[in-house]
Each structure stands twice: as structure tokens, then as C-alpha cells.
Design a protein around this nucleic acid. Structure first.
Length: 791
RNA sequence: GCCGAGGUGGCGGAAUCGGCAGACGCAACGGACUUAAAAUCCGUUGGGGCGUAAGCCUCGUGCGGGUUCAAGUCCCGCCCUCGGCACCA
């Protein structure tokens, strides 16, 4: 009888007391760093999606362990940040009080029970001073390298969370977390200059073993766009306005210029008689939130400034407009209006009766014609191909310059909140902006009940006099601390470095261990972090590399993004009441069953549909595995050994290619095929347990122990030695006539075509197909298939 | 709109290099065990047709074409779903 509860309790105790997966970070011979994405300890516990992710990662780690690697699988908690703080605000409990409770539940009731090979000595907690001391240190490294900068900027302000958000935390004008409409505010903020790395972040993708899905998400987020800037001299002054275009070939078709309403030239360009119109327009635009402003379907509006520029090629007068569809934050904040060859310009020109000039060969009813083609009515360049003009633009005229623009923006690091690491900067009246010296780290987050944001735009720390004032380390005078804390994404942008030196009080990460363990060999997590976390972690790594602290540029050699779990064909949500709580199944089905089922229900990289009926099926399967131990010891059939050899290959393929579901299926097939065995070798059963061990740790350990095995089964190697039986296996060869399957023959491996044909002709049924036909051709693939072409 | 991934039975999903489509599992149906039920075990299960039967034929991987001895897989043209980006100039 398979008593899963007793077995699991026993091995959970063994794992806790004997710690068989402790890794000697100094001495390990074959280091393999197996990482999964940092969990954020919510009060509601790890949900089934996290569990899916962690188990998928652990299955890989266990497999590598079985192959003999010293697998380091660290674990820790991403405990700072707005999630924890918002929850604290809602419940009225202090985050410093709540966070340890949440962590305790995660650790004791969930993570320690799932049979993962975590080395708990690795545990880090981003909200502990021992950790954030080094977060602050990393900030200072970047600051000293000129990669951190405070500047005035228009920022996304969430009126509900009362804080600034990075661009990537704004989804269609709404806050990623609370869905409140984002407002624009001008504030002084700390930024990391990630845009300096845009090209390298893009180019390095080629070298990484990541799936194309993840790479593609990063590519489009970086959003590299190659184009040309064109200078238009203003009619009324010596200044010029610069526009950015990817279609320099349409420059002869410009009939107007449109500036973003925020463009600094606008104020000066609006003529007296247009002032009222402009004021009116501006008040309408500023009332629009970002969601409305950037909605594609919204009608485009604009006004004429009253001023003109000169066309650099033709000298023609070009009216300058202001349009709400031009974004100040992209390109130069100004565009050249080419209505004949651009959708938006076309609509705009039609609306305001501006001329339309065709400069790319096409028929009139095709306008706006946005394809490339042959240039027409373009002075000396008429007849050129678009591509040629674009490629050579820079060399054609001094007012044309090649330019690359990125969608990626600098990383706004400041948060006007409480629950994060204080940014380690001081402002001294005499010395200006001063970094906190390393010896004074960490800048401790004060323990206070006064942590609720007041909407002033300042962090709660700004009200804390005890925190605020200090002494300038340079001149000894009075200095004020920076009161913003840093973005939660910064905590998790370097944690994989801390994991290799988790308790080192001297260094953030020790260089010897960096060389031994990094970069991370295998990283597993959700693709929803492809734009944010993965980009930031890559940036921080690249920056630390350039500073000379890391010998590599890319933190994660191999990354696999897993899919999402749904329940009975529907998305899980609180409102539907169909949230799966993993702990519910520990008692009813057991951890082994839950783990194996999660890996079996679908392709790990694509997600799956969670169904209790499937869970029952896996429980039955494990029970059948257990029943094999009741078979008398003896020798199993050749058929069984051949099946084992095939299963080993299939299971290994499944692990290597993260197709875990097919590995479970292969094991089920093996167990099914053993139903008729009368007796079996104990080694055979332990080999089944070895194949199963990455999926179902506890039953595997128990089977290993029942047959006298010592220590963890993961130290006993991946099964081998069955290939000799495979050589004895007969093959079944499908026989086709004219491409249609008509039968099969069974023959020894590596048979010649003659041997195969002999059997085919000898087969009573197959032979009938030859009657009255001439055999024209035989296509024979050894051990695979034979196709006979008859006339 | 652009970029990417995908579309396979009643359902979740397999099919590694162009070579037996539907592995494995669920559900359903039939049977064994049982006084009965649950549990468990055994069998059947893509559609259509022929045959008393063993079996045989035929269609079939979103749609339409094509390449090939052979196509879920490759090529061309569509449709739909999901993910990413998006007044991006």
C-alpha cells in the first residue's frame, strides 16, 4: 500500500535534518547554478503559478544533480517593494512586521515541503540591512561610474499608489498595479542610464540561449529604430527645427512640420494672432490623460503656429503646426508632415486642408502610399530607389544626419515610498550631491509607524527629522539625506550575485566564487518579466562588468520562460473563485503527485490546464510504481529491459528539452508495460525511481532506501547500461505501397533491403498488393520504413 | 498596424532530421470483483463505409493551392487565437 503521507513526512524530515543538498561553494567540482525567479513573499502564500515555476526549475536542478553536477539551487525573498507595502497599508500592519510572517509561511509551510533541492544557507531577504547594504553599494558603484543621475523630468505619477512609476510599469496609461490613470508630473528623480546600453542589450541577445519568444519581447521593448534627422531652418530666426524620420526619401513631399505641444520652440513660434488658439489647444491637450492621448483611434487635432520654416532642398515655405499626435518623448519631438506617404500626416492634412505632394511613384487612389518605391518629383534624386536615398542620406546634404532612436527609456529609480532601500546620497549646501561613503552603509531604513504616503510627492522619509539630517562626510557640515527609496526591481536586478556569497559581510560577492559559479547556468521564470526584471538584471551585470567587478556581461546563459496555468479551461481569478491553493493538495494527493501532475498536464514552456481528475490519475500512477516493489525479486523479461532502454532515452530527452510532460508519459508507458512481469530485479525498480526522482522526490528516495540505498538517490547517477538490450530488439517496419500504409513486418535491426523485400513477399497479405503490378521503385530507410512504388 | 508563437479526437496534450498521426492521460462506454457501491483491474473509443467474422477500404492535423515516393512537419496565399510593441514619425 502506497502511504504517501508517511513517506513524504519522513523525507521532509530527512531533507530538513540531513540537508543533503548543501553545496560547498568553495570546493564543488562540477558547479551548476540552477536559478528560478526570486519569489516575492505575499501574505496569501505561494500560488499555484509560482509552484509550477519553482517545481519546473527544481526538476531541472534534480536532473543535473543526477547527472553528477554540484547543483546550487539557492532560495530567498524579494521582500521589499510596493506589493508588500500596499498590503500593509490595507491591513494596517507594519511591513516590517508582516514581511517576516509571510516569509515564514513561504519557507516552512510551502518551500520546505515541496522536496526541492534548495540550499537554505543561501537564503537572502532584500529587506534585511545585510542585503540592502549591498543594494546601496551597487547603486554607488553605478553612481561613481556615471551611470546614475538625478534630473528633472516629467514622470508617471500614480495618484493611487502616490508614487512615481517607470514607463514600463505603465500599461496603456494605467498603473500596472492598481489600474489608476497615470498623471504626468515634473519631479527631480534618480535615473540609471540604461539607454547607453541599448545597443549591447540588443546585440548580446544573439549570443544567449534563450527562447525566441523572450528575445523577441526584449527586442521590441528596446525598439531600435534607424532613421535620419532633418534640419529645417526657421524663417524668422537663425535657429532650426530638427525632425526625426525613418523615411528620409519622402523629404521632398514635406508640406508642413508638426511639433509636440511640449516642444520648447513652440512658445516662441506661436505668433501673436495665434496665441489664443494655442492657449485653448494647450488646455485641451493637458487635460487628456496618457491613455487618451496615445489612443490610435482618437482624431488628431492641431493648430497652426503662424510661423514658417524653409525646406532645406527647395527653399519653399513650410508652415509649422503643433499637433497632439506628436510625442515629445520620442525622436526629436517634431515630425515632418508628408501626407502623401504617411497615414497620420494624410489624415491631418485632409482635416486642415494642407497640400498633399506625391514623391514616391504610385497611383493617386493609393494615397497615402506608405510603401517604399521609386522617388518622383524629388529634384535631382528623382528616379532613385527609396532604399538608396535612405542609406546614403547622411552623405547627400549637411542637414541630414543618421540617427538611431530607442523605445527603451532610462530607468527611473526613485520611489517616493517607505518600504525600500534608501538611496545612499546626501545633499550638502557646500559640497552638493555627495555619495554616502561605503563605510557608512547601510543607510538604515528607520523603523517608524509614520510610513503612509501623503500625496505630497515626497517620500514619508522626508517627514522623518531623525533620518533626514546628517553630517556631510566631505566637509563635516549639515547635510540632508535623499529621502526616496529605490525601485523594487533594483533589489532583484542583482540578487543572483549575492546568492553566491549570501553571508559575506565584507563583500557583495566574492570574486573567486564569481569565477566559479557565474554566470547562472539555467534560469527559469515567467515571461511576464522579460521587459523589466530580465532587462534590468542584464543592464546591472553589464555595468558591473564595465566597472571591472564581473568577468562576464550576461547574467543568464540559458533562460526558459514557462507558460501560464489555467483551471478547467478558464483563467484563475478571485472573482471566479477558482484559485488553486497548492497546500490543499499536500494532504489529499501528496507533494509527489502534485509535482508530477504539474509537470505532466502540459508543456512546461506553454503552461497547462489544471484539473483535479488529472491529479487523481497521477496518484494512481505513483501507486502503481509503488506496487512494483511488491514483485518478487528475480529477472525481468528482455522485453522489459528493452523498454527500459527506450524509456531512459525518452526521459533524458524530455529533461534536456524541458518537455517534462513527455518524460512522465514515457514513465507511465514503462510502468504499464511491466504489468505482466512475474518477477523483477531490484536494480530495475531503483532505476525507475531514479528516472522519476526529478519529478517525485519522496517516493523515489523511499524506493531507493527500501532496496538498501544510502543517502539521497540523486547522488546515485542517471540510469545506464540497458543499451545492450536495445541491440537485441526487433524493429517493426511499416510497409507502404504507393505511399499508403498496407502492413508491417518485424525484422532484426539493420536489415538490408533484400531481407526486407523477402519478408514482404512472404507475407500473405502484403503479397497480394503486387498482383498484376510492376514494381518500379523501392524506397527503404533502414529500421524506419519501406515504400514500394507500383506502376 | 508591426513583430513573435500557435491552431492536431469529446477534452488536456504527443509526434526529436520530411517517414506508422492521435503516444500518455482525462472523460465516456462495456466487462470483472462486490449483496451493493466506492476503490481497483481488464477491454473499447478520430469520422464515414464494407464485412457474419478475423479484417478491409476511405477521409482526416484551421482554410485554399504547391513540392515530394512520402507533408501535422517544407513552400506560396488566406483565416483565426494568444503574447509582445504601438499616433514610435
Amino acid at each position: 500500500m502506497y502511504d504517501f503521507q508517511a513517506i513524504e513526512k519522513k523525507w521532509q524530515r530527512v531533507y530538513a535534518s540531513e540537508e543533503p543538498f548543501r553545496i560547498d561553494l568553495e570546493q564543488a567540482k562540477k558547479p551548476f547554478y540552477n536559478l528560478m525567479m526570486f519569489p516575492y513573499p505575499s501574505a496569501s502564500g505561494l500560488h499555484i503559478g509560482n509552484m509550477f515555476s519553482f517545481i519546473g526549475s527544481d526538476v531541472y536542478g534534480r536532473y543535473m544533480k543526477l547527472l553528477g553536477y554540484d547543483v546550487y539551487e539557492p532560495i530567498g525573498f524579494d521582500a521589499f517593494g510596493i506589493h508588500s507595502e500596499n498590503y500593509a497599508l490595507k491591513t494596517g500592519k507594519h511591513p516590517a512586521e508582516l514581511t517576516p510572517q509571510s516569509i515564514r509561511f513561504f519557507r516552512e509551510e510551502q518551500l520546505k515541503k515541496i522536496g526541492a533541492i534548495y540550499d537554505w544557507r543561501s537564503e537572502v531577504n532584500t529587506s534585511s540591512p545585510e542585503y540592502y547594504r549591498w543594494t546601496q553599494w551597487v547603486f554607488l558603484q553605478l553612481f561613481k561610474a556615471g551611470l546614475a543621475e538625478k534630473r528633472e523630468s516629467e514622470v508617471n505619477w500614480c495618484p493611487s499608489c502616490k508614487t512615481v512609476l517607470a514607463d514600463e510599469q505603465v500599461i496603456e496609461g494605467l498603473c500596472e498595479r492598481c489600474n489608476a490613470a497615470i498623471e504626468k508630473k515634473t519631479m527631480s528623480q534618480w535615473f540609471f542610464k540604461i539607454t547607453r546600453y541599448a545597443d549591447r542589450l540588443l546585440e548580446n541577445l544573439e549570443k544567449l540561449d534563450w527562447t525566441d519568444i523572450t528575445k523577441n519581447i526584449q527586442k521590441s521593448w528596446i525598439g531600435r529604430s534607424k532613421g535620419t534627422t532633418v534640419h529645417f531652418r526657421l524663417e524668422a530666426s537663425e535657429e532650426s527645427v530638427e525632425v526625426f524620420t525613418t523615411r528620409a526619401d519622402t523629404v521632398f513631399g514635406v508640406t508642413f512640420i508638426t511639433l509636440a505641444p511640449e516642444h520648447p520652440l513652440v512658445e516662441r513660434l506661436v505668433t501673436e494672432e495665434q496665441t489664443d488658439v494655442y492657449r485653448d489647444f494647450l488646455s485641451r491637450v493637458s487635460k487628456m490623460d496618457d491613455a487618451t492621448r496615445t489612443s490610435i483611434s482618437r482624431p488628431k487635432t492641431g493648430i497652426f503656429t503662424g510661423s514658417y520654416a524653409c525646406h532645406p532642398f527647395t527653399g519653399e515655405r513650410i508652415p509649422i503646426w503643433v499637433g497632439d499626435y506628436v510625442l515629445y518623448s520620442y525622436g526629436t519631438g517634431a515630425v515632418m508632415g508628408v501626407p502623401a506617404h504617411d497615414e497620420r500626416d494624410y489624415v491631418f492634412a485632409k482635416k486642415y486642408a494642407l497640400p498633399i505632394r506625391k514623391v514616391i511613384g504610385c497611383s493617386d487612389d493609393q494615397l497615402p502610399y506608405t510603401e517604399k518605391g521609386k522617388m518622383v518629383d524629388s529634384g535631382e534624386y528623382s528616379g532613385w530607389e527609396s532604399e538608396r536615398f535612405i542609406a546614403e542620406a547622411e552623405s547627400l546634404a549637411p542637414f541630414l544626419k543618421s540617427k538611431v532612436h530607442y523605445h527603451l527609456h532610462d530607468w527611473c529609480l526613485s520611489r517616493q515610498r517607505y518600504w525600500g532601500p534608501p538611496i545612499p546620497i546626501l545633499y550638502c549646501e557646500r559640497c552638493g550631491t555627495v555619495p554616502v561613503p561605503d563605510k557608512d552603509l547601510p543607510v538604515l531604513l528607520p523603523v517608524t509607524d509614520d510610513y503612509i504616503p501623503d500625496g505630497s510627492g515626497l517620500s514619508p522619509l522626508a517627514r522623518n527629522e531623525g533620518f533626514l539630517w546628517t553630517t556631510c562626510p566631505v566637509c563635516g557640515g549639515k547635510a540632508r539625506r535623499e529621502t526616496d527609496v529605490s525601485d523594487n526591481f533594483f533589489d532583484s536586478a542583482w540578487y543572483f550575485l549575492r546568492y553566491i556569497s549570501p553571508n559575506n559581510p565584507e563583500e557583495a560577492f566574492s570574486p573567486d566564487r564569481v569565477r566559479k559559479w557565474l554566470p547562472v547556468n539555467m534560469y527559469v521564470g515567467g515571461n511576464e518579466h522579460a521587459n523589466l526584471h530580465l532587462m534590468y538584471a542584464r543592464f546591472i551585470t553589464m555595468a558591473l562588468h564595465d566597472i571591472g567587478l564581473l568577468p562576464f556581461e550576461e547574467p543568464f546563459t540559458r533562460f526558459r520562460g514557462h507558460g501560464m496555468i489555467i483551471k478547467d479551461g478558464q483563467k484563475m481569478s478571485k472573482s471566479k473563485g477558482n484559485i488553486v491553493n497548492p497546500n490543499d493538495y499536500f494532504e489529499t494527493h501528496g507533494v509527489d503527485t502534485l509535482r508530477t501532475y504539474l509537470m505532466f498536464m502540459g508543456n512546461f514552456l506553454e503552461g497547462g490546464d489544471f484539473r483535479e481528475s488529472g491529479l487523481d490519475a497521477v496518484k494512481r500512477f505513483l501507486s502503481r510504481v509503488w506496487d512494483l516493489t511488491t514483485l518478487p525479486a528475480g529477472s525481468s523479461s528482455l522485453k522489459a529491459k528493452i523498454k527500459m532502454a527506450e524509456t531512459i532515452k525518452r526521459v533524458q530527452f524530455a529533461f534536456e528539452n524541458i518537455k517534462y510532460n513527455t518524460g512522465v508519459a514515457a514513465l507511465m508507458e514503462l510502468v504499464n508495460s511491466l504489468q505482466d512481469e512475474k518477477e523483477i530485479e531490484s536494480g530495475f525498480i531503483v532505476d525507475i525511481a531514479r528516472l522519476l526522482a526529478p519529478y517525485a522526490p519522496f517516493i523515489s528516495e523511499e524506493i531507493h532506501a527500501v532496496y538498501g540505498g544510502k543517502g539521497t538517490i540523486l547522488n546515485t547517477g542517471f540510469p545506464s547500461g540497458y543499451d545492450i538490450y536495445l541491440e537485441q530488439a526487433l524493429v517493426e517496419i511499416p510497409v507502404q505501397f504507393n505511399g499508403k500504409l498496407r502492413g508491417k513486418i518485424t525484422i532484426a535491426q539493420n536489415a538490408t533491403q533484400e531481407q526486407v523485400m523477402e519478408l514482404v513477399r512472404a507475407d500473405e497479405k502484403l503479397a497480394t498488393y503486387f498482383q498484376g503490378k510492376e514494381l518500379k521503385k523501392v524506397i527503404y530507410l533502414q529500421d524506419k520504413i519501406v515504400n514500394l512504388i507500383l506502376a
